[in-house]
Simulated scan of single mutants.
Amino acid sequence: MAKKSYSSGSGPSQRQLRVGELIRRALSEILQRGDIHDPDLNRLSVTIGEVRVTPDLRVATVYALPLGGEGKDDIIALLAKNKWELRHLINKKLALKHSPDMRFRLDEMFDKMDETRRMFEQEHVRKDIERADSRDEDEAEQE
């Protein structure tokens, strides 16, 4: 009996993670070297934070952010405009069986990390954390 192609777990498979990382590295290298024939895209420094691939490896969602955070909307539009050339270069570089269709999204992870840091710096949150830490220490001593 054939094994199901989709895992029953909630997260991505090892294959999805591996292919996503390969695409992220290739895309970063292509953008860094300026292999694209678009001068507007070549003059910008782009950070590729993550690439998520669907289970069938046909669609790759690329999370990108311009270095310094300025021109966020422009970078997504430029990447989308040049996606066919990027797809061609990635396929040539990685020799994948199927070149995934790429969708570009703004990487908001850095904003979320900044917000989390601000939250942990608030006085009432810090007190709650210290209280929880002291309770954990008391429980460890009792055992």
Rank of each mutant, 00 (worst) to 15 (best):
R18M: 09
A77R: 15
F110W: 07
I76V: 15
E141N: 09
D40T: 03
L41K: 13
I23M: 03
R103T: 10
S10P: 00
I36E: 06
M102D: 05
R117Y: 07
E121Q: 14
D133G: 07
K4F: 02
H124N: 10
G71E: 06
G49M: 08
H98I: 04
G69D: 03
R135N: 11
L106M: 06
P12N: 08
S7F: 02
V51A: 07
M1Y: 05
R18T: 11
H88D: 08
P100G: 02
P66E: 09
R118M: 11
M102P: 01
L94A: 02
D136G: 07
G9R: 12
L65F: 09
E121F: 01
R15G: 05
L65V: 02
R18Y: 10
K93P: 01
A2L: 13
G68I: 03
P39L: 04
A2R: 12
G20A: 06
A77Y: 03
K112H: 15
E85P: 03
I30M: 04
R58F: 00
R25F: 04
P12C: 09
V53I: 14
R105Y: 05
E108G: 10
K4R: 08
Q14W: 06
L67V: 07
H88C: 12
V46G: 05
M102L: 14
L65N: 12
I36K: 12
S134Q: 15
E85F: 01
Q122L: 14
E121K: 14
D73V: 07
D35K: 15
L78M: 10
L57S: 02
P100Q: 01
A80D: 13
I36L: 10
K97W: 10
D35Q: 15
L57T: 07
N42D: 03
H88A: 09
D111K: 10
L41A: 01
A26G: 11
M102R: 02
R118H: 10
L96D: 14
T54R: 06
V59Y: 03
R43Y: 06
P66V: 04
A26P: 08
